[in-house]
């Protein structure tokens, strides 16, 4: 993806809208009446204590969890990086990225992406031997395989070192410059200027 190039035209386009979202977990209302809109270039940070429903809200936005109330309108393709990395124990970062590039029909330079993510050294090491931070990098590298306007990130900085964190921040900045949007659940300092914060 070329940084700084506007990929999506028109700032009035909403990439993602949700209205009146609510969900039950067991007998308890986890949250209700959550509405949000995400426009190109925006970054929304979800905050709240553990168990407040940040992950559940993100999964609803991704279409993985069905809301008990309200609706989600997905106006654009999205990338999902959940708190589980999605790597198989015997997959290497290289085979992982190649598999998903093929599955998505994306024409990406996997070697360059591995290099960008600081994964060129462990590129051919099976995921079960990788550190949590290396697996996280491989999961986040999927974001670069294909240009998609919306990124949904659940705790993207978990297990990353300072350098990895900077890389992700640069990716987010480039994505927003190109007219993409990010919705992320983050603890502590987000590191990027959020255009909106939502406390659950």
């Amino acid at each position: 993806m070329q940084l700084g190039q506007r990929v999506y035209s028109g700032d009035d386009v909403q990439l993602l809208t949700a209205s009146g979202l609510g969900i039950l977990r067991g007998e308890r209302v986890l949250f209700e009446g959550v509405s949000l809109t995400v426009a190109p270039g925006e970054a929304m940070v979800l905050r709240g204590p553990n168990g407040a429903g940040k992950t559940t809200l993100l999964r609803m936005l991704a279409g993985l969890t069905r809301p008990e109330a309200g609706r989600v309108n997905r106006g654009a393709a999205l990338h999902w990086v959940g708190h589980r990395d999605g790597l198989k124990p015997n997959e290497t970062p290289r085979t992982h990225l190649k598999l998903w590039a093929k599955a998505w029909g994306a024409d990406a330079d996997v070697d360059a992406i591995l290099n960008d993510m600081g994964l060129s050294r462990p590129a051919d090491v099976a995921a079960r031997y990788l550190s949590a931070g290396q697996r996280r990098r491989a999961a986040l590298a999927r974001l670069m395989l294909e240009t998609r306007p919306v990124w949904l990130l659940d705790e993207p900085f978990t297990a990353l070192d300072a350098e990895g964190r900077d890389r992700v921040l640069a990716m987010v900045a480039g994505h927003r410059q190109g007219g993409g949007a990010v919705v992320a659940a983050v603890h502590g300092d987000a590191g990027f200027a959020a255009s909106r914060e939502m406390v659950l």
Partner: peptide
């Protein structure tokens, strides 16, 4: 367990 299901559901 490894999160691959989330990805497969979104293809």
């Amino acid at each position: 367990e490894d999160g691959a299901l989330d990805l497969w559901l979104q293809t």
